[in-house]
């Protein structure tokens, strides 16, 4: 099945991003396709490379960058990002900033759009 993923909550603060990450990993392991991953609301904070968690904790942005390195399109909403000070200079490699049209394309081009948020 072809999935797209929408993540709406901030990192560490909320489990939405962690659940999404596990979902993506499991889906790929089972041979499904991830068409794209889109970050909106406070979800845009998930890919800032300025995060520096304690060394015994997971680095959420780095994890997404590794998923992006597999060729999966990871998009941060430009409007939500601008509002929160997330710029192209501070996002991790293999992610990009673009518009909500990308979310629409992912959604209509997938069998399922799965939203992770409250």
């Amino acid at each position: 099945m072809k999935f797209s993923i929408l993540i709406l909550e901030g990192p560490y603060h909320h489990e939405a991003g962690d659940s999404a990450y596990r979902f993506v990993e499991a889906a790929l392991r089972k041979g499904h396709e991830i068409r794209g991953i889109f970050f909106y609301h406070d979800g845009v904070y998930n890919v800032t490379k300025l995060m520096e968690p304690p060394s015994d904790d997971r680095n959420i942005a780095k994890r997404w960058s590794e998923i992006g390195a597999k060729g999966i399109d990871i998009v941060v909403c430009i409007a939500a990002a601008k509002r929160r000070g997330i710029t192209p200079e501070i996002i991790v490699p293999n992610t990009r900033i673009s518009g909500l049209g990308q979310l629409l394309e992912m959604a209509v081009d997938s069998d399922r759009l799965v939203t992770f948020g409250d």
Binding site: Y40, H41, L100, D118
Partner: peptide, 19 residues
């Protein structure tokens, strides 16, 4: 919370697409 306001922004943007 910002959900409703940013949700409105999504509607305005996606309205431009023919769906």
């Amino acid at each position: 919370s910002i959900y409703a306001y940013e949700g409105l922004e999504v509607k305005l943007i996606m309205g431009a697409f023919d769906q």
